[in-house]
Computed example of a mutant assay.
Amino acid sequence: MTPKQQRGTVTADLLLDAALRLYGAEGERGITVGAVTKASGVSLGSLYHHFGSIDGLVAELMHRWLTRLLGDLFTALQEARTTQAAIHGLVRAYLAFVKEHRDAALLLHSSTADQHNMSRGKEIRDTQEARLSAFGLWLDPRIESGELAPLPHALIESLVLGPVVAVARRWLSGIDDVDLDEAARLLPDRIWRSLAP
């Protein structure tokens, strides 16, 4: 990477990091051009050069953190020795991500992300195709061997992530009847039961 490219990466990171801090503190209304440039110390021109618009910055911020979350989930699958342990690990990895990266989790579970995902779902899915294909490749032999119930991939994904996303949203909204540590203890086995053959 050339020095100019390195400076560009640093500048983009400053903008993205500032936007996430602002989102965590003030929600969507906190991410304005003025607030992001002030918090990052980066010029308006650089913001437009790297992201095209504030919407482009937010889209890249969501993409960055979604990529990281999916990476954590796939690592949990790869490191497990059994199918049951993999499902348990995936559930725990998701909840750990939410707890460790609260601001990013807030963004990924926001109405902004929902709207973005609904309007650009295929494009987002295509950019994550390598990881999603790897998940499918992980699932297929386990379904064929009878270790997992013979369900379509989308239904397995929904059975695993549906309850976890619901718990994450509840915790992120500030409702104090959800404890992520307790959920990490109880949910994996409950979810596993829904997938067992």
Score class of each variant (00 low, 15 high):
Leu161Gly: 05
Ala59Val: 12
Phe51Gly: 08
Ser40Ala: 02
Thr83Ala: 04
Asp126Leu: 11
Ser119Glu: 15
Asp126Cys: 10
Glu100Cys: 04
Ile191Tyr: 03
Thr32Gly: 10
Gly30Met: 15
Asp17Trp: 03
Trp192Lys: 12
Asp189Gly: 14
Asp72Gly: 12
Thr37Ile: 07
His50Arg: 07
Phe97Trp: 10
Asp140Phe: 10
Thr82Asp: 04
Leu108Cys: 00
Leu15Ile: 02
Pro3Glu: 11
Arg170Met: 09
Ala134Arg: 05
Ala184His: 11
Ala183Gly: 00
Met1Phe: 10
His116Thr: 11
Tyr48Gly: 09
Gly52Cys: 14
Glu157Thr: 09
Arg81Thr: 10
Met118Val: 15
Gly89Arg: 02
Gly41Met: 02
Ala104Gly: 05
Gln115Ile: 14
Asp72Asn: 12
Pro3Arg: 04
Thr127Trp: 02
Ala154Arg: 15
Arg92Asp: 04
Leu106Gln: 10
Gln115Cys: 11
Trp192Ser: 11
Ala196Ile: 06
Gln128Tyr: 10
His50Val: 14
His63Gly: 08
Ile31Gln: 01
Ala166Lys: 00
Ala196Pro: 04
Val164Met: 08
Glu100Gly: 08
Tyr94Met: 09
Thr32Asp: 05
Arg92Phe: 12
Pro163Leu: 04
Arg190Glu: 08
Gly71Met: 00
Leu106Phe: 14
Ser46Leu: 05
Leu44Arg: 14
Trp192Cys: 03
Pro197Met: 13
Gly121His: 04
Val33His: 04
Asp114Phe: 12
Ala134Glu: 11
Asp179Val: 14
Asp126Ile: 14
Ile31Glu: 02
Ser46Asn: 08
Gln128Cys: 09
Thr2Lys: 01
Gly136Asp: 13
Arg92Cys: 08
Ile124Ala: 13
Leu107Trp: 00
Leu14His: 15
Arg92Lys: 09
Glu157Gly: 13
Ile175Ser: 06
Leu70Cys: 04
Gly27Ile: 00
Gln128Asp: 12
Pro188Thr: 12
Ala59Glu: 10
Gln5Tyr: 00
Glu157Ile: 07
Pro197Ala: 15
Val10Met: 08
Glu60Ile: 00
Thr83His: 03
Ile143Leu: 10
Val42Gln: 03
Glu26Cys: 13
Leu106Gly: 10
Ala166Met: 11
Leu22Gly: 02
Leu137Val: 02
Leu95His: 02
Leu106Ile: 13
Gly121Asp: 09
Asn117Val: 10
Leu155Lys: 08
Asp179Ala: 06
Arg169Thr: 09
Gln5Leu: 12
Ala149Asp: 08
Leu106Trp: 09
Arg125Ala: 10
Glu79Thr: 03
Ala85Asp: 06
Thr67Ala: 07
Leu180Ser: 07
Asp181Ser: 13
His109Arg: 06
His50Pro: 11
Gln5Glu: 10
Gly146Cys: 03
Thr32Phe: 00
Ala105Arg: 03
Arg190Gly: 07
Ser111Tyr: 11
Gly27Phe: 06
Arg170Cys: 10
Glu123Phe: 02
Asp177Tyr: 01
Tyr48Val: 09
Leu44Thr: 13
His49Tyr: 14
Arg169Gly: 12
Pro152Gly: 06
Arg21Pro: 15
Arg7Val: 13
Leu132Ile: 11
Gly30Ser: 13
Leu108Asn: 01
Ala25Leu: 06
